[in-house]
């Protein structure tokens, strides 16, 4: 029982971090139809910028400044990069963001070197929040939950309850109409792209010291974020949220349970011991393949429901 409660909490924290990254990606996609490969790279830039800012001014200014800077970088990418290749269709845009991934990684390695950065949790958040069955729950995890929940609420309010959100939603489905009504649609696009990058930057600020700030962090986070977005349904914020939490929980719980696929069948029939590939697949413990389960799930959902959980169009 206790391990389930602890795992629930852990899965929630990780799921929320995933959501913070994936929400920006899915927003950008629903808006512009561009799958931004460089999204995790912006996350990495966010972490490095946060490290630099927190070194001079402290963690709280970093929490505000780094996402803003990332948003500015995003706006610059949109205005001077994406908008120009847009005429050449989606493939050109994809390739453009794909190239950015390499440029950003090399750039970060050139500027900050290849060693991990000593970006640490600030001392005033570095204490055990409460003790659950003898294990500490770090205050920083609570703080992460707080930030991501706040962000979720803010996006929801912005999109559903304000005039800005109204225009964004309209531009999503009827860009020509919105343009005819006198709104600057390219400007809206830039805004959304900048906003999405800002969210990735925010995830970088709080993920950089929770995980590790180093030049391979984009590589490590990139694939899983795509899985979340595809699983939840491209362009669906609610689907993205559900998918993030599911992924967080799956990865956490898979590790805790030492069952194999063969064990699952054991109430029905006894799986004979086999010295073949199939036998190996059936008897590998869940904990050993836990982090790969999200990818398996993605393949599954692409097979049975290509649009994802709550998506509206096929991928």
């Amino acid at each position: 029982m206790e391990i389930i409660l602890v795992s629930l909490l852990n899965g929630l924290v990780y799921g929320m971090l995933l959501f913070m990254l994936a929400s920006g990606l899915t927003l950008i996609f629903s808006m512009m139809g561009v799958l931004n490969f460089a999204h995790a790279s912006i996350y990495m830039i966010g972490a490095y910028l946060a490290f630099e800012v927190s070194r001079w001014f402290g963690f709280l200014p970093a929490l505000i400044l780094a996402p803003i800077l990332c948003g500015a970088i995003g706006a610059a990418i949109e205005i001077w990069g994406l908008r120009r290749v847009h005429h050449n269709g989606h493939i050109a845009e994809l390739l453009f963001t794909f190239g950015l991934v390499f440029i950003v990684q090399r750039g970060v390695q050139m500027i900050w070197g290849m060693l991990p950065m000593p970006y640490r949790v600030p001392s005033y958040l570095d204490f055990p929040l409460f003790t659950l069955y003898g294990a500490n729950f770090p205050a920083y995890r609570g703080f992460m939950l707080l930030i991501s929940a706040g962000m979720l609420l803010a996006i929801w309010l912005l999109l559903k309850k304000t005039r800005v959100g109204l225009i964004i939603q309209a531009a999503l489905t009827h860009p020509n109409m919105v343009s005819s009504l006198g709104h600057n649609v390219p400007m809206v696009f830039t805004g959304v792209f900048a906003g999405g990058c800002g969210l990735a930057g925010l995830a970088g600020v709080i993920g950089g010291n929770y995980l590790t700030t180093e030049s391979s962090m984009a590589d490590a986070m990139g694939p899983i974020v795509f899985v979340v977005v595809v699983f939840g349904g491209l362009g669906s914020l609610a689907g993205c949220f559900i998918a993030s939490i599911i992924m967080g929980m799956i990865q956490t719980f898979a590790v805790v349970f030492d069952y194999t696929i063969a064990d699952m069948f054991s109430p029905l029939f006894k799986v004979p011991e086999m010295d073949t590939l199939l036998g190996e697949i059936l008897t590998v413990p869940m904990s050993r393949i836990g982090p790969l389960l999200p990818y398996a799930l993605m393949i599954l959902i692409l097979l049975v429901r290509p649009r994802g959980l709550l998506g509206t169009r096929d991928t």
Binding site: I3, V6, S7, A220, T252, V255, V256, P291
Partner: peptide, 12 residues
């Protein structure tokens, strides 16, 4: 290099 959250391992 695929594990981002080690807390379930640590619980074990």
């Amino acid at each position: 290099g695929r594990v981002k959250d080690f807390s379930p391992y640590i619980s074990k």
